[in-house]
Simulated assay, not measured.
Amino acid sequence: MEDVLANIDASAFVGKVVYLAVVVGIALLIQRVVVHGLKRALDAAGVPKASIFVNIVRTVIWAFALLAVLEPVLGVQPTAFVAALGVTSVVISFGLQDTVSNIVAGLGLMMGRVVRPGDQVTIGGFTGEVVDVTWRSTMVRDKGGKVEVIPNSVLNKTALTRETDWSVTDCPVEFYVEQGSDLDAVTREVQRLASEKCGAALAPGFSTEVLFDHLGPLGIHGTAHLHLVAGSNYAVQADALVRAISRAPWIARPASADTSASIINDATN
């Protein structure tokens, strides 16, 4: 009798394991097909692909898979489980208000096409490329590789500036020119030096712009706008141009520097 009961228990256990394996296999297959179809549908509809949509679909699929194995494998009535889960979720939701807020905000941002992976944006003074939009946050990576993780609920309430190609590639280099200098000649010289020192890193389709905006105690303030390709080290390229133009005869030099130089020369003599 004990052998018969043992065989019955063993066969029942094996049956449950097989049933569980079949359900998991079907769920994995459905997930693969549905996620692939979702990505194609998003592309066709012009809605950006982000992990938040894929994660929601996966959660729904595995929730149904769990309900399918509750009674056959665990002996739990699905209706009772759902009812208990509903009561529990109300209690838990009070402690997960921020998480729920981030999820809802993330869906709103993506469906409204406010931010999409690949966008160049400035958020709260931080400028970079949107890498991904997840359940809780949006990840933005700047030119130096630093990744800023911004909660979706915060992003939904923060002013966002969408950058243009001009501003994304811009590497400004400021300098002062002596008053009375030929600014057209200075512009040509700066552009030549930029091409010579930073040519390999300059973005095609953009010329190096040299703009003069005001007169100051040091002279005429100018800014050279280098437009660099993605992946360039902006600090290195700016350093190369600064070193080159610092030796130009038209560069403004403080009077104190001239005085110091005279003192050094007098001491040497």
Results as ranks from 00 to 15, higher is better:
142 D>W: 15
170 D>G: 09
182 D>M: 07
144 G>T: 14
152 N>H: 07
176 Y>C: 01
217 P>R: 03
169 T>I: 02
227 H>C: 07
163 E>Q: 15
167 S>I: 03
160 L>A: 07
144 G>V: 11
209 E>S: 12
214 H>E: 08
144 G>L: 13
186 V>C: 04
226 L>R: 04
238 A>M: 06
221 H>A: 11
227 H>Q: 01
219 G>C: 07
175 F>C: 08
219 G>R: 03
166 W>Q: 12
175 F>P: 09
238 A>V: 02
208 T>F: 07
232 S>C: 03
163 E>A: 14
254 P>W: 07
226 L>C: 09
237 Q>S: 06
185 A>D: 11
148 E>N: 14
179 Q>C: 03
169 T>A: 15
163 E>H: 13
179 Q>D: 11
184 D>K: 00
216 G>F: 00
146 K>M: 13
176 Y>K: 01
176 Y>H: 07
164 T>E: 15
234 Y>S: 12
155 L>N: 03
184 D>R: 00
213 D>M: 01
172 P>N: 12
196 E>N: 04
200 A>G: 02
257 A>E: 05
251 I>G: 00
249 P>A: 12
245 I>W: 05
224 A>F: 04
225 H>W: 07
232 S>D: 02
144 G>I: 08
253 R>M: 13
214 H>V: 05
157 K>D: 13
155 L>W: 06
190 V>M: 09
222 G>C: 06
254 P>L: 07
235 A>N: 10
210 V>N: 03
167 S>L: 13
144 G>E: 15
189 E>M: 00
145 G>P: 08
153 S>G: 00
165 D>R: 09
205 G>A: 09
214 H>P: 00
234 Y>L: 10
225 H>E: 09
154 V>N: 10
240 A>F: 05
215 L>T: 01
239 D>E: 11
236 V>R: 12
220 I>R: 15
202 L>I: 02
231 G>S: 07
235 A>I: 09
183 L>N: 05
171 C>W: 13
211 L>S: 05
205 G>L: 11
204 P>D: 12
167 S>E: 14
199 G>N: 03
210 V>Y: 08
187 T>W: 13
176 Y>E: 05
241 L>S: 03
150 I>Y: 04
219 G>H: 04
244 A>E: 10
167 S>V: 10
142 D>R: 15
185 A>S: 13
185 A>T: 03
216 G>P: 00
198 C>M: 11
188 R>S: 01
208 T>Y: 07
208 T>V: 15
206 F>C: 04
162 R>N: 12
234 Y>R: 15
146 K>E: 15
251 I>R: 06
187 T>L: 02
